[in-house]
Simulated scan of single mutants.
Amino acid sequence: MTLEVAPAHDFDDMATMFTPRKPESSVCWCLSWRLSSNENRALAGTARADKVHELCSRDLAPGVLAHLDGEVAGWAGIAPRSELHPFANSRNIPHLDDLPVWSLWCIRVRPGFRRQGVTPALIEGAVAYARASGAPCVESYPVDNGGQRVDLTMAYVGTRSMFERAGFIKAAETDSVAGGFPRILMRRMLD
């Protein structure tokens, strides 16, 4: 079994992760935490895919993709917080200081690839990408669920324990909630 994580520059691989059964459907494409509310609402149907195609063609990838034995297995959204309108302007998630932190806001593993180590590999791959891009710190905003089950529709934010296992520490409370659980701000400083 070969598990590799790399920057998401291949739009076809992104499409494998996100294309809905009906291409004209307005699904997330992991843009909801990247764009302002107005921009997000304005992009409908295939325009969302077009926006991701544009993001994949930039020097700075929109995140990282995991491949298990050559097949697309998972995604992690990571970018400078300053590029992520909802986080950069959030009233619910605090800014602790002026560090140009990167935010790791979404982790998604495709059905059939779960429970094979993809999530920890995505977190480490995202952190490595941020470090290689000059980030001094990576933040995440997982739920503090105390071991309780998280509804799969809200599980993309991750859990406190999964980020603790990856070397993140709780840095602050937030006023944000996901799936009925409070979200916390966790950090991992990079050397």
Rank of each mutant, 00 (worst) to 15 (best):
G45W: 00
G112I: 14
N92Y: 12
P136V: 06
V143I: 08
N38D: 15
N40W: 13
I93W: 07
I107M: 08
V150F: 02
S133D: 14
S26P: 05
R114Q: 09
Y156M: 02
L60M: 14
A130G: 06
K51F: 07
S133E: 13
C28R: 04
L35P: 03
H85S: 15
C28D: 13
A79V: 05
P86I: 03
K51R: 15
G63F: 14
Q116R: 09
L104V: 10
D59M: 13
S32D: 13
S140D: 01
A155D: 03
R131P: 13
P120F: 07
S37V: 15
D98G: 07
P20S: 02
S133C: 10
S36E: 02
A88G: 13
L99F: 06
P120S: 02
G70I: 06
T46E: 12
F113S: 05
H85N: 14
Y156P: 04
A44F: 10
R81E: 04
G112Y: 09
D97P: 01
S103E: 11
L84G: 10
P80F: 14
W75I: 00
V72R: 11
C30D: 04
G45K: 01
R115I: 06
E54A: 13
R114L: 07
G134A: 02
R48Y: 00
V64Q: 14
K51A: 14
R34A: 01
R48H: 01
V72Y: 12
A66S: 05
G77T: 08
A79Q: 12
P80K: 15
R21K: 10
P142Y: 01
D151I: 09
D59Y: 14
G63M: 14
V127S: 00
F87Y: 11
C30H: 00
R108W: 10
W102K: 02
A79H: 12
G63P: 12
G117H: 03
G77Y: 04
S25R: 13
E124D: 14
L43N: 11
I78S: 07
H95F: 05
G146R: 06
F87D: 05
A79R: 12
C28Q: 03
N38L: 15
S82K: 09
Q116L: 11
E71N: 12
A76H: 02
S133G: 08
R48C: 07
C56I: 09
A44P: 08
K22V: 11
Q148M: 08
G112H: 10
N89S: 14
W33M: 15
L55G: 03
A88V: 13
C28E: 05
E39S: 02
R21P: 07
W105N: 15
E139W: 09
